[in-house]
Design a protein around this nucleic acid. Structure first.
Lengths: 347, 347
DNA sequence: AATAGTAATGCAAATGTTTTCATAAAACCT
DNA sequence: AGGTTTTATGAAAACATTTGCATTACTATT
């Protein structure tokens, strides 16, 4: 078996066992073309015999890449991000990279701290969610020369390379759909927009579209709910009991929409017979719920995948450009939204 | 501002700027007590002026800790794991550690590969989900002397230190609840158990309890569904249309239970009037759905938190023991399960 | 057969930090 | 004052690897 006397198995030990110099061992790892097949085989055997595992930390001291990418998300524990993290991780893994992850719970100061933390580990690049970041963070990236990119959001003039969707458009599409169904009394349920450019862009997209259609934005129907089913349900319960309620609710994302639907149901309202609800995102489960959730699909999986590919290309120097990739949005009409004319007017 | 001539800002540059030796700078980071307050201040100023960020890779070459912990999960993109990953990450962050994450999609060979990958980065420890792992993986841990722990599962005789729940008991509790309501015709909906000790333990727990109560396990009612709402819904739709169906379904986790409920609803069955459904896990959203899901609560958040604390303690040497922590389970009765006597017998 | 060119390998310096040991300076104790 | 601790600092070796340069051994070309 393997040596019980587990002395330091480093590259010199391997070299000794294969009766070559450490340089050759190093080369056979990093530039296999430069070492003869015979010695390469000898080295491989020695590596297996000793159970050698190369030390990426030592590599990185030579300006060499670390094969790690840092990802900073607002939170891991959320359907949206879980999916994009997974596909990003898989994607960079294919290129031989490992993911260092950190979350900041929507606090831009903590985002800065996390960035420093990742930089201490000399990650080869840092991916951030969204395009809105503290000045200090952007300066730090600049100053350290760390490759960076933005995930999830798209903007044609973004400072960082980005792969994502246009959230303003997402809001517009959702509003468009409800208007198309004939609704005019439309409530908006969104998380608070500060420090969250996704939410604020969607909100303004929706508002712009409604105003363009001449629909007034009733102050009383601008609701605020955090990204949580429980709290969204609570908000809906409180607000739907009022005398005058909207005929449709446009929610900032699918989680909120789900909460709102449950809230409506628990108030004895039927969706969509009494009220239409739309989400944004198309998370797992949105298609399957009964009735299925009408939503604007954001292709999380392919965002993560494309981002991973492009970013590793950029880092390895396989491609140079400042990419900005806009992933297409799609309005998915399911059961939670219905024609205004179909309303069971129980007022 | 900061030097445009961004020469290498290493510890010597800082030393030079603070007019001390590199040793002193290093000390002021790692053993601040050993350096006089005056010089320490000078050093801090130099660090800020130059924008120095210490290099953990270089540190780790001295046998020093890396301040990274590797976590290998079956998948990130899943309500269960997302929550536990988040709390584990937060917990180790508090101790100054960063999380390296990798997933293997329930493939034990890939788990082994991921372990090697993390070891190349010289993580200070590796946390794995579950107690069932390839022999090669366990040998590798042993051989490399990497601290390791198991997350999510508990067993009194586990090889690795562990923090988690007893899944056998979880299955038992769920079965117990349904039996207590008077059900005898109970179907089981579980993911395939190979390479997934959580699922297999829950399944055997449920079966044992049912057999002990003299309830026969009807072959036709042992259904298999992966951890996905969509597929669980599909399975339920296929199977609930049969002539003879169970009065209650015990599902391997909440995601499956949700899928099954939607499936039942889409077949025109009402939960719990026509059929009771229970889950295991108590994921986010399970409490809020209408009706609320009856389930066995597994405290994901506190599992991650405790695991993070204990593991970092073990790694920093703050504590020595082979911990095995069993997190309590709790049967949460909500709206999806009802007394057998309440069944609306529509047969 | 002599020369040039190429392929395979080794030597040694370099990477950024920590740590042991040594030394200098200051503080304390008769 | 003289000696003894204590405190603060520096010099240099060590960590595991990569790489530029040098060297050797072939192969191809004249």
């Amino acid at each position: 078996m393997s040596d019980k006397f587990n002395e330091k198995v480093d590259i010199v030990a391997v070299a000794k066992a294969a009766r070559v110099s450490p340089s050759t061992v190093s080369r056979s790892f990093n530039h296999p073309g430069l070492v003869s097949p015979a010695t390469r085989k000898r080295i491989t055997r020695a590596v297996e015999k000793l159970g050698y595992i190369r030390n990426r930390a030592a590599q990185s001291m030579h300006g060499r890449r670390n094969a790690t990418i840092g990802l900073i998300v607002p939170t891991i524990d959320h359907a949206i991000f879980a999916e994009v993290i997974q596909s990003f991780s898989d994607s960079i893994d294919r290129a031989g990279f490992t993911l260092l992850i950190a979350s900041h719970s929507y606090d831009l100061d903590r985002e800065y701290a996390m960035m420093r933390k990742l930089m201490e580990h000399r990650v080869d690049g840092i991916a951030l969610v969204g395009l809105e970041h503290a000045d200090a963070s952007l300066r730090l990236l600049e100053q350290q020369g760390t490759p960076a990119m933005a995930l999830w959001n798209y903007a044609p003039d973004s400072l960082l390379p980005c792969v994502g969707a246009d959230n303003h458009e997402a809001g517009r599409i959702a509003a468009d759909h409800l208007l198309g169904l004939g609704h005019r009394d439309i409530g908006l349920v969104f998380p608070r927009p500060d420090g969250n450019d996704r939410a604020s862009a969607r909100l303004s997209g929706a508002r712009d579209r409604l105003l363009a259609a001449g629909v007034p934005l009733i102050e009383d129907w601008q609701w605020e709910a955090p990204y949580s089913i429980a709290q969204a349900k609570q908000v809906a319960q409180d607000l739907l009991r009022r005398a005058h309620r909207p005929t449709a609710l446009l929610c900032g994302n699918d989680v909120i929409a789900q909460g709102v639907i449950y809230g409506a149901q628990s108030c004895g309202l039927r969706v969509p017979q009494d009220i239409s609800v739309t989400g944004i995102g198309d998370f797992k489960g949105s298609a399957e719920m009964e009735p299925g959730l009408t939503t604007v699909r954001i292709p999380a999986r392919s965002i993560g995948e494309i981002a991973g590919e492009r970013f590793t290309d950029l880092i390895t120097g396989a491609s140079e450009d400042h990419f900005r990739i806009r992933c297409p949005l799609e309005c998915i009409v399911r059961g939670t939204s219905a024609l205004y004319e179909m309303l069971r007017l129980s007022l």
